[in-house]
């Protein structure tokens, strides 16, 4: 059973709802970061929603995903709770990592979300490892790695794909080509026009799809998942998409023009175009869409309120949850910290 059945009207509405949830969540996170409310760093996924929702929609619910530094969309598409995510962004104890990971490190292993990741290109090796565990234990699952157009050029990504291709591991690599690696346009980073062309080097299928069309992403990942599940090995999919915002909130974006951004927003917006297709086929009305928007906006606002009021972790909790087995050195430093009467910091 797929996570979101885009073959059915209810599934399509759910796909739209998740894309809109990502959009509103990140628009809100952006505002609260600019207010100085959210600490750390925020990399909005706005504009790229169709990739996360289409790809994860085609997976089964207990499949694994690995994410990137721009991970909010992957988390929400995987069904993570916006309230616990927002709490994590605010550094609060109720967050997915007890407030110690922040925006770039949200993980929920039970949900199959193996972690957002501040290291560029670190998702594919994790997914290759997860896929190895699936093959080793003969489980009926697949792993999917998200990676950016910058990340795909990292050495460890090559190692990860090479290993998975050689061992026919059940994994799908999705390259989110949002046209810029930080501030560098994709044509200044790569010698190939389509990043999926690199699949030839591993003798696996690779193809490029329209990452602004949730149905195209869904269909492509569904085929790649079937291949992985059948024991035929990995597939490399490049989804051409666009990042509406800067690399991070606060990026001055001197590397591109407003006209370029507006052109994508006007002609290719993944939410607007998909909404219109559902309206055209009488599966949704404009009123229902507005109602959906209000419901989600309310839920996101509530998540912010909740996160603001939630308790922060105690400073000595920094020593917890680091390793599965207690590590003597860490226990030693934790004991010393408590003996020194370590005090709780302010709410930030």
């Amino acid at each position: 059973m797929v996570t979101i059945d885009m073959e059915q009207p209810e599934g399509r509405k759910e796909g739209l709802r998740r894309m809109l949830t990502i959009r509103l969540f990140d628009e809100t996170a952006e505002k609260r970061f600019l207010d100085g409310d959210i600490p750390g760093f925020v990399h909005p996924y706005i504009g790229e929603e169709a990739v996360a929702v289409g790809a994860i929609g085609a997976l089964e619910p207990d499949d694994y995903i690995t994410s990137t530094h721009r991970g909010h969309g992957h988390c929400l598409a995987k069904g993570l709770d916006p309230e616990r995510m927002m709490a994590e962004l605010y550094g609060k104890r109720e967050g997915y990592c007890k407030g110690k990971g922040g925006s770039m490190h949200i993980a929920d292993v039970d949900a199959g979300m193996l972690g957002a990741n501040g290291i560029v290109g670190a998702g594919p090796p994790l997914a290759t490892g997860a896929a190895f565990s699936i093959q080793y234990d003969d489980r009926d699952q697949v792993a999917l790695a998200f990676c950016g157009d910058g990340g795909i050029a990292q050495g460890q990504v090559h190692e990860a794909i090479n290993m998975a291709a050689t061992w026919d591991l059940p994994v799908v690599y999705v390259v989110e080509n949002n046209q810029y690696g930080e501030g560098t346009p994709v044509e200044k980073q790569h010698n190939v026009e389509n990043l999926s062309d690199t699949a030839h080097a591993y003798d696996i299928p690779g193809f490029t799809i329209d990452g602004m069309d949730v149905t195209a992403v869904y269909e492509a990942v569904a085929e790649a998942r079937d291949r992985a599940d059948a024991g035929d090995g990995p597939t490399l999919i490049e989804a051409k998409t666009y990042r509406y915002r800067g690399h991070f909130v606060g990026d001055e974006e001197e590397y591109r023009t407003d006209e370029e951004v507006e052109g994508w927003q006007r002609e290719d917006d993944p939410i607007e175009t998909f909404k219109q297709r559902l309206v055209d086929r009488d599966e949704l009305t404009d009123e229902e869409f507005e109602q959906l928007r209000e419901e989600i906006a309310t839920a996101v606002d509530e998540a912010v309120e909740h996160a603001r009021e939630a308790p922060t972790p105690e400073p000595d909790e920094a020593y917890e949850d680091m390793f599965a087995q207690p590590a003597p050195e860490i226990q030693h430093f934790a004991a010393q910290f408590r003996a020194d009467g370590g005090e709780r910091g302010d709410d930030r």
Binding site: S196, F207, T235
Partner: peptide
Amino acid sequence: GRDIRRLTGGASVVDD
């Protein structure tokens, strides 16, 4: 020549 039939069928690809 970049379509998904390379995955689902036997179509081959001519790269750049």
